[in-house]
């Protein structure tokens, strides 16, 4: 009589062991570094040697990519549609410019200060986007960005107003590595910042925090009912994303040694949204792929039709949406192995 019971307990324990090791395997696989990730960074590094004459456009791509990865945290992970992400980019750019002009022109210090300033603004404004529908969030983010743009325009004594902020030049990185004429050292520096930021975003995405973010995006009511403090998570995410956008703005200032009021313009917020539309949201590398695609396309179009490239970008977006972004960005899923648990709905 006791034998079968014994046996079933044994099998139960075995089954449990099988389930558990399967669960561990699945969780591990979720976070493995994918081959395409390694390829991207190796490729980026290779361009330094292979395309020395293209440093300027590569720099542009790196900055836009960083900006887009930052927006992806907000949009692709937390599910907040923002039309005003340029507020943080612009504040970062101006902070870096002012810091270089009045305090020190060492870029890394400027970068950190700019990130901190943008992060503060992000934290302060995050409370405004916690409630409400997509429309109110859209309006609030847009309104904040417009107010920032107006502030920069009005405070001409500080920002140079419509003429922009100039009169500073950037010192060598850590006082050691100068920005060279071809932009090579600069590009390596930008690449390092982009790499580190993406790394941080990646850790974040695969952490328990990241797990709760996508749950919030998918179903905020249910997320709260498994114990996720939705508001707190959104505040943190928005702040982190703002810091990264501030970094991107600072990098632009460091490239050009000039801050134009254009850094806060609406089209910057729109462009970065379009970058994610092209690259896909919710898996981090959409910002990088999108930035490459968008910049190359814009570059090619503005050679063909310098005044009217905007028309073709617009047409591309309309087609992209009509055909279905999800369908067009599905190739991402097939990049070698996928990013399970990170592919997301674009809802």
């Amino acid at each position: 009589m006791s034998l079968p019971v014994q046996e079933s307990v044994q099998t139960g324990a075995e089954e449990q062991h099988v389930d558990q090791s399967r669960a561990h395997r699945l969780m591990q696989r979720r976070t493995t570094v994918r081959s395409f990730e390694i390829l991207i960074w190796l490729g980026a590094l290779a361009t330094v040697y292979l395309l020395p004459s293209k440093m300027l456009i590569l720099t542009e791509i790196a900055i836009l990519a960083l900006f887009a990865v930052s927006l992806d945290l907000v949009l692709g992970f937390a599910g907040i549609v923002s039309l005003g992400h340029a507020a943080f980019f612009g504040l970062g750019a101006y902070t870096a410019g002012l810091f270089a002009r009045y305090v020190t022109a060492e870029p890394v210090a400027g970068l950190l200060v700019a990130g901190a300033a943008a992060g503060l603004l992000g934290y302060a404004t995050s409370f405004l986007i916690l409630r409400g529908s997509d429309l109110t969030r859209l309006m609030t983010t847009l309104g904040i960005a417009l107010m920032m743009a107006e502030a920069a325009n009005q405070m001409a004594w500080l920002t140079g107003g419509a003429d922009g902020l100039s009169g500073f030049s950037i010192d060598p990185i850590f006082g050691l590595v100068p920005f060279d004429l071809w932009g090579r050292n600069g590009f390596i520096y930008y690449l390092v910042v982009l790499f580190l930021s993406t790394l941080v975003a990646r850790r974040l995405a695969f952490s328990p925090f990241g797990l709760s973010l996508k749950a919030i995006k998918s179903n905020p009511v249910r997320a709260a009912l498994v114990g996720v403090p939705v508001r707190r998570r959104l505040i943190t995410t928005y702040t982190v994303a703002a810091v990264m956008a501030g970094f991107a703005g600072a990098l632009l200032t460091h490239t050009t040694s000039f801050v134009s009021p254009d850094v806060l313009a609406f089209h910057r917020s729109a462009d970065v949204l379009l970058v994610l539309a092209i690259g896909g949201t919710g898996y981090l590398y959409g910002g990088i792929f999108g930035a490459i695609g968008f910049t190359l396309l814009k570059d090619a179009l503005s050679v063909v039709t310098p005044q009217y490239w905007m028309f073709w970008i617009g047409l591309l977006l309309v087609i992209l949406v009509l055909v279905g972004r999800a369908r067009l960005t599905r190739w991402v899923d097939d990049l070698g192995e996928r990013l399970p648990g990170l592919r997301g709905t674009n809802r």
């Binding site: 549609v81 997509d134 949201t281 009217y308 028309f311 309309v318 992209l320 949406v321």
Partner: peptide, 26 residues
């Protein structure tokens, strides 16, 4: 696109805005 996500609608209509701005300019 009535049943598309708001993000899709935003991207689509921004695309239309870009087209109209460039077309008017042209």
């Amino acid at each position: 696109l009535y049943h598309a996500s708001h993000l899709d609608q935003v991207i689509f209509s921004v695309g239309l805005v870009f087209m109209s701005v460039a077309a008017a300019d042209y």
